[in-house]
Nucleic acid binder design. Structure first.
Lengths: 76, 76
DNA sequence: AAACACTCGGGTAATTTGGGGT
DNA sequence: AATGTCCAAATTACCCGAGTGT
């Protein structure tokens, strides 16, 4: 039989470090209470880092959004 | 100083060459923050190479997924 | 053998994209 | 300069029942 016990049946380690999780435009838009289109403009303006799905949709980094939200939520 | 435990140990056990490890649809989906079904569409569209289990389930190359992720990142 | 999570298909809503205009 | 809305096309998300689990 199998000598190995079962060290790991389902490794959840996708290689995605904490803070690198991605968000959809709608998610970010709701956090700022703005239109998703506005979030897109921020991304295009280079104010927000993003990556794209293979279909071309943008995905935003959660940690960066949180950081931006902090800076804007606190009246500078 | 090395905080990293050890990124991979399966290759030593299975004899699979580095970078050739396979990922499930759910794993890939989490990395892109999309639905597993979407990953399937990418595969069907030829945007992602895949193998199949004997039962017909798709498996993706971690190597290629990581590369696609890095290339789609708009980080300058 | 049974149970549970995940994936397979298809089909149909909801979201996103890009450009243009207020 | 910055934001919200309208449009059409494309992409993605959720629904189901049935099969897989290197």
């Amino acid at each position: 039989m199998n000598g190995s016990p079962d060290p790991e049946r389902e490794s959840a380690d996708t290689g995605v470090p904490p803070g690198a999780e991605l968000m959809t435009p709608a998610q970010v838009a709701k956090m700022f209470h703005v239109d998703p289109k506005t979030v897109t403009r921020w991304a295009q303006a280079g104010k927000l880092t993003y990556m794209r799905t293979l279909g071309g949709h943008r995905r935003y980094r959660r940690d960066e959004v949180i950081d931006l939200l902090r800076n804007s939520t606190d009246d500078e």
